[in-house]
């Protein structure tokens, strides 16, 4: 890559589109986790954020949400600074980021997606519970509404997280590894939920580490290796060259052949 000169502009210029990042960098303890990433998600796209471990996939999502500080660059969600568009953005954090021994039922967790709508101080009421139950039904978990979350399997827990995001009723969804460690049935539920969101005109970005399934699940891709290696329609960017570049030449020819790229 030839060196690029970037004008770093901290004040976001008006950017249309569900998610726009420009020159976005994240630095942890002096080490770049994400470097100078330019990306614009097309409206209504299902975007797979792909790359090896430590490629900055989670950092990209968190930086876009404004959860980690930007070392440079900027990001806008739905045309606004991340702090301003939160009511219209849904988020699925990594499943391992919370303690599943927490005293809560599946319904309790899904209701958390409706807290903003309730507002400060107001307790969870019957209408909120019914709305949360409807979201659990959409992920095939209605029968588990009152089950303590610690008694659910990994795939079921992931479905509860998805239902909580659905409850947020957002226009843009950011999901961090929702397919990690889920069973086949939950995988199917997640896929149809993603397609359902797309059919409803929503834009979805999904951090995904499984190269085998990525081309089937998503129509767009952002391939990261700290910096953005490639982004665009899946068929154009999911190639042997970009993957080898992202994975530092560590993919064997047989692996690439299996991916049919």
């Amino acid at each position: 890559m030839s060196p690029q000169i970037h004008l770093v502009n901290r004040a976001p210029i008006p950017a249309q589109g569900p998610l726009v990042a420009h020159g976005l960098s994240v630095v942890y303890n002096g080490k770049p986790a994400l470097w100078n990433v330019d990306f614009a998600a097309p409206a209504g796209a299902l975007v797979g954020v792909i790359g090896p471990n430590g490629a900055g996939k989670s950092s990209f999502i968190k930086a876009a949400l404004g959860l980690v500080p930007w070392a440079s660059g900027w990001a806008t969600l739905l045309g606004e600074a991340p702090g301003k568009s939160r009511a219209r953005v849904g988020y699925v954090p990594q499943r391992a980021s919370v303690d599943w021994d927490f005293p809560a039922s599946a319904l309790d967790v899904v209701a958390m997606g409706l807290y903003r709508k309730l507002g400060w101080f107001r307790p969870v009421n019957r209408r909120t519970k019914e709305a949360a139950r409807a979201c659990l039904e959409r992920v095939g978990m209605a029968d588990f509404a009152d089950r303590p979350i610690g008694q659910l399997s990994g795939g079921q827990q992931q479905r509860v997280f998805l239902a909580r995001a659905l409850a947020q009723d957002a226009d843009l969804y950011l999901m961090d590894e929702p397919f990690a460690g889920v069973d086949a049935a939950s995988e199917q539920v997640l896929i149809s939920a993603l397609l359902g969101l797309q059919a409803a005109g929503k834009t979805v970005l999904v951090v995904h580490h499984d190269l085998q399934t990525a081309p089937d699940y998503f129509d767009h891709a952002l391939i990261l290796a700290t910096r953005a290696v490639a982004s665009g329609p899946m068929a154009e960017v999911f190639t042997a060259e970009t993957l080898q570049e992202a994975y530092g030449g560590r993919l064997a020819p047989s692996q690439l052949a299996a991916l049919a790229v």
Partner: peptide
């Protein structure tokens, strides 16, 4: 309850 269970989600939700 929200910040005890999932502070990251809470922050993302504003």
């Amino acid at each position: 309850r929200l910040i005890a269970f999932d502070p990251e989600f809470a922050a993302a939700a504003g």
